[in-house]
């Protein structure tokens, strides 16, 4: 599937994904974008070539004295080889939102396959949190048509991938496959006229800055802590 996305991950994020140096939550959201975006897929294969060059060039030839190489080789070549590409996933790739269903990119389908528990938040927002690691908070967000997320800012960065519908904020209008990055400096107020399903990854809790939504702050922090400590154990 290829969609012409207007907004892409930053070069640092793509590089981290190619190298494997990101937290699982961030890897998942980038993976989902890359599956939809031919431009980024091309960048990734170039970055992988570059990373492999660097790996071979900079890594010392540390010989592991503990390894019995010939025994290891003997045990490996006893295994049958894989002749055809049939590792088709048993994932659930769709999510049903009210009147229609949305096909999810592979990594997100896997994330959603355990079942999502949706909670309704203020302002017509539905949220289903998933725990992928102890450094990020990941969630599917469904914004009903005409809904608005309360004005908020982030302590760390927030990445949002649009999966269906669209949303807008002060800086743009975002459609499927668009990858929206907001950092601690940005205070923004996303809204969706037509309704929107997205997947968001936060590397620290949101802080609402206006109105009654500020009352939610302690709970958001609490949930973030709970989500991350659940991951740690």
């Amino acid at each position: 599937m290829n969609i012409d996305a207007k907004y892409h991950p930053t070069p640092e994020q793509l590089e981290g994904y190619a190298e494997g140096s990101l937290a699982p939550g961030m890897n998942v959201v980038i993976s989902a974008h890359v599956e939809l975006c031919a431009t980024c897929r091309q960048s990734i294969s170039e970055l992988e070539e570059a990373a492999s060059e660097e790996w071979l060039r900079s890594t010392p030839d540390t010989r592991a004295s503990s390894i019995n190489f010939s025994a290891m080789i003997d045990s490996i070549v006893d295994h049958p080889q894989i002749k055809n590409d049939d590792t088709t996933s048993d994932n659930v790739p769709e999510i049903h939102m009210l009147d229609h269903s949305v096909t999810l990119p592979r990594a997100l389908a896997k994330v959603a396959s355990d079942g999502l528990v949706w909670k309704q938040l203020a302002g017509g927002i539905n949220q289903a949190t998933v725990t992928l690691d102890d450094q990020t908070q990941c969630e599917f967000l469904y914004m009903k048509p005409g809904s608005q997320v309360p004005v908020h800012k982030h302590q760390g960065s927030e990445v949002t991938l649009v999966l269906d519908g669209s949303f807008e904020d002060e800086l743009g209008h975002y459609k499927p496959a668009d990858f929206v990055v907001r950092t601690a400096k940005d205070q923004h107020q996303p809204a969706s006229e037509e309704g929107c399903l997205c997947f968001a990854v936060l590397d620290s809790p949101l802080t609402f800055t206006k109105g009654l939504a500020r009352l939610l702050n302690p709970f958001i922090r609490y949930r973030f802590r709970r989500a991350t400590s659940a991951a740690a154990h």
């Binding site: 048993d90 994932n91 790739p93 769709e94 049903h96 096909t103 959603a112 396959s113 079942g115 949706w118």
Partner: peptide, 11 residues
Amino acid sequence: LVHEEAGTMEV
């Protein structure tokens, strides 16, 4: 990808 029913939406 195999198309199947996703988990029920619980609001």
